[in-house]
Amino acid sequence: MEWLTFWRGIAAGIKNFFRNGWLSIATISIIVLTLFIINTVFVISLIAKETLEDIQNKIDVSVYFKGDIDENKARELVGLISKMPEVQEAKYFSKEEALIAFKQKHNEDDIVLKSLEELGNPLQPSVSIKMKNPNAYQSILDNVRNSQYKDLISDVDYYSEKKPIIERLNNIIQAIRKIGMAIIMIFAIIAILVTFNSIRLTMFNYRREVEIMKLVGANPWFIRLPFITEGMLYGFFAAWISLIILYPVIYFSLPYLNSVAPNIDAINFLHSQAIKIVAIQLGSGVILGAISSLIAIRKYLKV
């Protein structure tokens, strides 16, 4: 008989949910709205973060050698650097290669080209280094500068030029992560309060029902069960609807997203995260609904 009571409670909750269609729709839409804002902020902050990291990864650092060094020794160092696990690519440019590149870059600037002819080749051989993680430059370059090869090196543009850029990007990424988290937290709290309040209103409608249930000798858990079921249904539907809305919104804003962040495939990203997002939202929606109803019904359940 215990199972019978249990199923009846759940069935009653489902029945209530559909019988009070308008109330259910109103409650769900409010939850959907807050969940949707949370989703949007989450996606935007993720895209912003990925974009900035993408830019950060494009940065490379050049180490310039002195003009009169032994090229074999320089190549030896480049070989060592390119074998480091943190390094994605290390490429040696000899004096001559640097000159060709320079000429190509300035091939329309006659004055520069003429002055080059008079000077000969003033350029230095160099190695251009790209790392997998932009934050690894510092320690590796420090090591190189203190190694046995330090006499070869005349200058590293990391310290003067690249370091401030990398650090600034780092700061922006951190800030976006923090602001995004803060906004999500705020809206999560709003979602909880709004959900709780709408469920409380719903329960207010049921106070008569609860009173009668008490009178005919219903077990308190039997009274709670329909309302918990109903609260869980709110959370369940709200989570799905907010996800279903998110898809077309992202789809139609793709052109804009791509102009900002050409390398990011938002739809694919969403697909890869979908299970996680669904799980979190469904879970939190259902739990939120259940807990809200449990608290809201308490007031009318006093013996």
């Binding site: 008989m1 009846r8 009668i212 249930m213 005919v216 000798g217 077990n219």
Partner: peptide, 23 residues
């Protein structure tokens, strides 16, 4: 009276038995 207006006469009465877990 304290009847539930959204339920029929039959349901209002059967309510008391459902609560008691009867078949």
């Amino acid at each position: 009276f304290k009847l539930l207006n959204k339920r029929t006469v039959f349901e209002n009465v059967s309510f008391a038995l459902e609560v008691a877990g009867r078949g």
